[in-house]
Design a protein around this nucleic acid. Sequence first.
DNA 1: CACGATGTTAGTATTATACTAACATATTTA
DNA 2: TAAATATGTTAGTATAATACTAACATCGTG
Lengths: 136, 136
Amino acid sequence: MSRTLSITRRERDCILIIGEDIKNGFPDRLVNLSRKLKVSSPTVLNILERLSQKGLIRRQEGMVTLTARGQQTYQDLLESHRVIESIFYRNGISETECCEEASKIDYILEQETVSKLFTSLGKPKSCPHGRPIRGD
Amino acid sequence: MSRTLSITRRERDCILIIGEDIKNGFPDRLVNLSRKLKVSSPTVLNILERLSQKGLIRRQEGMVTLTARGQQTYQDLLESHRVIESIFYRNGISETECCEEASKIDYILEQETVSKLFTSLGKPKSCPHGRPIRGD
DNA sequence: CACGATGTTAGTATTATACTAACATATTTA
DNA sequence: TAAATATGTTAGTATAATACTAACATCGTG
């Protein structure tokens, strides 16, 4: 029953970018991802292949979209990031640090753990800084 | 001024075992580590070489000891683990989960962040379960 | 001395990350 | 339309962390 994201750091970064850009109505193509992640296109291709194999993304006409599972993962990442940020923020960590530190671990914790923390914190709707969560 | 451990998961596990065993008066040799980490001896050797290069351990007469920096890293890991466990425990995570989840991230966060959390939490002296923190 | 425990070397494998060079394809524009 | 630009892909290489087996070396004790 336990749900773990089982993604790597780079895959996390990638999913966050893709998810956000889709929300904004600008689905990514490989070049965008290459620029945003600041890595070469073959490197992005490599990451996308892994995400594809994990059933998290799909590519059509050069556009990268999230599958249902990818969407879920994206939402999980957002929740995880916000929860961690909130905890940190409530314990004296600055906004910038909160985000940086949360980014290092938001894709690692069990979603079950995150959910419990979320509930315990009073289900905070927004992250402390209010800005969108970005990959890197 | 920021201090990061800059160690990998396996290196973390290794340092925790070494540190604990030294405290108990039973410094490890390669075979012990191999057994405790449940990996082959060449694999342990490999990890020890990296820890050596990072100036965290020293080997003499088959015995593995922590350098001053290694001791510091060990203490940092303990603090980090306890702080994270405490936060989790106070937010409805079970003892077992606390430890498991904390183990996944205790070697990743900035020590500065951990210190702030530690202070904010009221400087808890012991981890929730009271048991020693182990490397896996 | 032989045997068992311990340690080391060499070689191999996998996964994640990341690069360059070269090529292919598509779009745009002069 | 031909050339230029943008985009995507393939192939090859590299590094770091993790982990293995096989083989060899060393060391201590009975």
